[in-house]
Amino acid sequence: MDSIIFDLDGTLWDSSKTVLTAWNEILRKKDGINELTVEDLQGTMGLQMHEIGKKLFPSLDDQAREQLLQECGDLENVYLENSGGILYDSVEETLEALSEKYKLYIVSNCQEGYIETFYKYHQLEKYFLDFENPGRTGLSKGENIKLVIERNSLSNPVYVGDTEGDLKAARYAGIPFVYATYGFGKVEDYDFAITSFAELKQLF
């Protein structure tokens, strides 16, 4: 193994409370649209933005939904840059240890600018060599994983995530999947499992 590619939400941090505050600030100004709960947001983890929009705002047409998601995403990035999310236990010390042995990357289903807020607020960019997301490429998570692998000439990576979508993306890219059981999803098929982020130091 030469590298580890990480999912972000439910794997490295939980940003749902900060995101919820931002989204509900937008939604309160919209007629006929209810505010969201943390459970609403957590139920969309692992989905791409257009899938999230259809699940949360099924009554809107595609254009209105896209515009609303753009507004929510823009304000979300502002809030996250100022407030961050909740890092899971031992994330930084584990990343520091892993980065001494492996190349580290992030591939997340998020809008452009989201991973950058994670880097900026928590000062963790120094541990990662590259990242990708559909907000920048328009590709699926599996395609973005393959893009990172090809772009960085990785020969034997693994993907760490917490949802069924993460599993499918890893399988699409043809690499092993490490299931973060402490995250948001339920996954039955995986190559390895961890119950805390720090366990990656023992696993690898």
Rank of each mutant, 00 (worst) to 15 (best):
P58E: 11
Q67G: 06
D62N: 10
D62Q: 14
F57N: 08
K55Q: 10
G73N: 09
L68E: 04
E71G: 07
R65P: 00
D62H: 08
K54H: 06
E66A: 10
P58M: 02
L60R: 10
S59H: 10
G73Q: 04
D74E: 15
E81H: 13
N77H: 02
D61L: 14
G73C: 11
Q67W: 00
G73S: 15
D62T: 14
L69C: 04
E81N: 13
G73P: 03
K54D: 11
D62L: 12
A64V: 06
V78M: 01
L60S: 08
L60D: 15
N77A: 04
Y79D: 05
L56H: 02
D74T: 12
E76W: 01
Q70H: 08
G53S: 11
K54C: 03
D74V: 14
E71T: 09
Q67A: 05
C72T: 11
K54W: 01
Q70P: 00
L56C: 12
L60A: 08
S59F: 04
E76V: 08
R65K: 03
S59L: 05
N82R: 15
G73H: 00
L80V: 07
A64L: 10
L75Q: 04
G53L: 02
L60I: 12
L75I: 13
L56V: 12
K55C: 09
E66F: 05
Q63H: 14
L80P: 03
G73R: 00
E81F: 08
D74F: 11
V78Q: 09
C72V: 07
E66D: 10
Y79M: 04
P58W: 01
R65L: 04
K54S: 06
E76T: 10
Q67P: 01
L68P: 10
D74Y: 08
Q63A: 15
Q67V: 09
K54G: 05
C72I: 09
L75M: 08
Y79C: 02
E81Q: 12
A64R: 04
L75E: 07
N77Q: 06
